Amino acid sequence: MKIFGREPVVVLNALSAALGLLVSLGFTGLTAAQAGAIVGVVTAVFGAVAAAMTRPVAPQAFTTVVAAAAVFVATFGYEVSQSTIGAVNGVVLATLTLLTRPQVSPSRPGAPVAG
């Protein structure tokens, strides 16, 4: 299955990073804590869906946990601005997606599993 000619996991991570960009530009009208909570939850949910769509699950699950944790730590541990929350989300997602991509393959019935 492809979305806009791309693997669904890449699209989900890009959507999560785009949400981080919207937050960093201040289009949401939310407080930094509200924006961080929303970005963290969306990152976790999109990551869980992406993990369900890839094999092995571990690299995508790791990406999700680290990205969501980074957003939550930035939001609630340091009380940083919305722009910093968006930047942390975008950088972590982009970096981890690039690093873990060679280790996963789309999950398809009957397809060989990367390993």
Rank of each mutant, 00 (worst) to 15 (best):
L21A: 12
F76Y: 14
V73K: 01
I38R: 08
N89D: 14
A33H: 14
A67H: 10
G110E: 09
V9C: 01
V92G: 03
V104T: 15
P8W: 00
A70T: 09
V104Y: 00
L21V: 14
Q103R: 15
A67E: 10
V41H: 02
P109R: 14
Q60P: 00
T31E: 10
A70P: 05
P109V: 13
V10I: 12
G86E: 02
S16F: 08
F27Y: 09
V73H: 03
T97W: 10
A32Y: 03
V45I: 15
Q60L: 11
A69R: 08
S16T: 14
V73A: 14
G77F: 12
T63R: 13
Q34R: 13
I85W: 06
T64N: 10
A18M: 13
V39Q: 04
T64F: 10
L96A: 08
G47Q: 07
A61E: 03
Q103V: 10
V45M: 05
M53V: 00
S16Q: 05
A37P: 02
G40C: 08
V9A: 09
P59F: 13
A35R: 11
G77S: 08
G86R: 01
P109A: 12
A69E: 05
A32F: 07
T97A: 12
A61N: 04
G26A: 06
T84C: 00
V71F: 05
G115N: 13
A111C: 06
A61C: 07
G36T: 04
A48E: 06
L96K: 08
N89L: 07
L21I: 11
A114H: 12
P8I: 00
K2A: 08
A94T: 15
G36M: 04
A74I: 10
A58V: 13
K2T: 13
A48G: 15
P56Q: 07
V80N: 04
V10K: 03
F72I: 11
G26W: 01
P106C: 11
R55G: 01
G20W: 03
V11Q: 00
A18Q: 03
F46V: 05
P56I: 10
S81I: 01
F4E: 03
R6S: 08
L22R: 01
T63W: 06
G5L: 06
V65W: 11
V66C: 11
V49C: 00
A14H: 03
A87T: 14
A94Q: 02
R6H: 15
P56W: 02
Y78K: 07
V11H: 00
P102R: 12
V41G: 02
I3L: 12
P56G: 04
I38F: 11
T84I: 14
T64E: 08
P112W: 12
I85T: 02
F76A: 03
F4R: 07
A94H: 01
V39A: 11
R101I: 03
V41M: 09
S107V: 10
S107G: 01
V104I: 15
